[in-house]
Simulated scan of single mutants.
Amino acid sequence: MLKIARINFKKCVLSLPRPYLLPARPTPFTLDFICILIIRIINVSIDEPKWQIWKKHMGTEKFYKTLAQIAVMLKNGKVLGLPTESVYGLSCIIQKAAVEKVIALKQRDLKKGFIVLSGDISHLLALIDTEKLNEKQLEILSQRQDKPTTWVVPVKHEYRWLTGDFGTIAVRLTDHPLLKELTITLGCAIISTSANLSNQPPATSYDKVQHYFGDQLDYIHPQQNFIAAKPSRVINLISNEVLRD
Rank of each mutant, 00 (worst) to 15 (best):
T183K: 06
K11S: 12
L125R: 14
W51F: 10
S142Q: 11
K11V: 00
I103M: 12
W51P: 02
D109S: 14
I41K: 15
L90Y: 11
S45K: 01
K106Y: 06
I103T: 13
E48Y: 05
I235L: 10
K147Y: 00
K96T: 06
T60C: 07
I53W: 00
I4K: 14
I121M: 15
L179P: 05
V72F: 07
G113H: 09
F166N: 14
R25P: 02
K132C: 10
D129C: 10
E158Y: 07
H157L: 13
I140Q: 11
T168N: 14
M73A: 08
F29L: 14
S194E: 09
T30K: 04
T163D: 08
P222L: 05
N225Y: 10
V242C: 13
I238S: 12
A104R: 14
G59I: 01
S198P: 02
V99H: 00
R160V: 01
T27R: 12
S239N: 10
I36R: 12
L82D: 08
K78N: 13
L14K: 03
I70K: 00
L197G: 08
L182I: 12
L125A: 06
F226M: 07
L182T: 03
D175R: 12
L162H: 06
N134S: 07
V152C: 10
I115W: 09
L37V: 00
L178F: 05
P17L: 04
P23G: 05
L179C: 14
T27N: 07
K230C: 07
F213T: 00
I220T: 11
T174K: 06
L90C: 10
D146K: 12
I128A: 08
L182R: 08
G89H: 02
P148H: 05
K132Y: 03
D47Q: 10
L22T: 04
K156M: 13
V87Y: 04
I39G: 07
C92R: 06
K78P: 07
I41E: 13
L82I: 15
E48H: 02
V116H: 09
T84C: 12
M73C: 07
G119Y: 06
P49S: 00
L117A: 06
P202F: 05
L141T: 03
V155C: 14
H57W: 08
V99C: 03
W161H: 07
A228G: 14
S86L: 01
L197S: 03
D47M: 04
L22K: 05
T66G: 01
I4C: 09
Q69F: 10
N76Q: 12
Y219V: 02
E241F: 03
H57P: 01
W51V: 09
N134Q: 04
D215V: 01
K106G: 09
T185D: 06
Y206F: 15
C188Q: 15
L117H: 04
K101M: 06
M73S: 11
P154I: 05
P83R: 02
K56M: 05
T130W: 00
D109K: 13
Q210P: 00
L16P: 01
L82H: 08
W54F: 04
R244K: 13
F29A: 15
V13Y: 13
H123D: 15
R40K: 14
D165N: 13
L117E: 04
V152G: 05
I115S: 06
D32F: 02
T130H: 04
P231L: 00
Q223H: 03
L127K: 08
P26D: 03
L80V: 02
G59Y: 01
R18I: 00
K208N: 04
